[in-house]
Simulated assay, not measured.
Amino acid sequence: MSNNTPIAQTPLFDRKASIRGYKLNKMAMSLGEAPNRIAFLADEEAFLDSYGLDDETKTAVMSRNWHEMVRLGGNLFFILKISAVDPTPIIAIGAAQAGMSVEDFMVQRLGKKNG
């Protein structure tokens, strides 16, 4: 028995999202190669422009708005390549996706207590 009830505020990565996020995902995957990481770090906006990202997507990437990148069609597995360049802890991305502070995410989702 399957439950097709959508989870509130959770973007679905379907065909439409895949098409929408193609350039974002292609750019993110390219960060697996050292020369691309160097170019990204040297001039992020120019690097994003070289992949033809629109202003909305560029803003999401440059502000590291993980939830927005997913909403715009970013595949989380590809977007994680962006986080590796900074580096951004995956827990911070999980907290952003859940709309929580890192501290609350650690306690509520991972059962970790502060201190």
Rank of each mutant, 00 (worst) to 15 (best):
M27K: 07
E44Q: 15
G111T: 02
K23R: 10
A8D: 13
F40I: 02
A34W: 15
M29P: 00
Q108R: 02
R20T: 11
P11T: 07
A42E: 15
D49P: 00
I93Q: 02
M106L: 05
L80K: 00
D104M: 03
G99K: 05
E33V: 11
A42C: 04
K112Q: 09
T5I: 09
G111A: 07
E44Y: 06
I93T: 07
R71W: 15
K81F: 13
L110Q: 11
Q97I: 15
R37P: 00
K112W: 05
F13P: 02
I91E: 06
V70C: 10
K81N: 11
Y22C: 13
G73A: 13
N75H: 12
M27N: 13
E103A: 06
T88W: 07
S83P: 01
K113C: 00
A46D: 14
L53A: 01
I90G: 07
A17D: 04
E103W: 01
L110D: 00
A98S: 10
G111C: 02
K26M: 10
L53G: 00
M100P: 03
T10K: 08
N65I: 06
P35S: 12
I19N: 09
R15S: 06
S50C: 05
E33S: 11
G74Y: 13
I91D: 00
A8K: 12
G21S: 08
V85M: 14
R109P: 04
N4L: 02
F78S: 04
S63M: 13
R20N: 10
N114W: 07
S2Y: 09
V61H: 00
M100V: 06
A28G: 06
D14N: 10
S101E: 06
A96Y: 01
L31W: 09
A95F: 01
T57G: 07
D54S: 10
Y51G: 10
N36D: 08
N36G: 03
A60F: 09
T10D: 14
W66I: 11
A60L: 13
A60T: 14
E44V: 09
A42R: 09
A95R: 00
M29Q: 12
G32H: 12
I7K: 12
F77I: 14
G73W: 11
E56D: 08
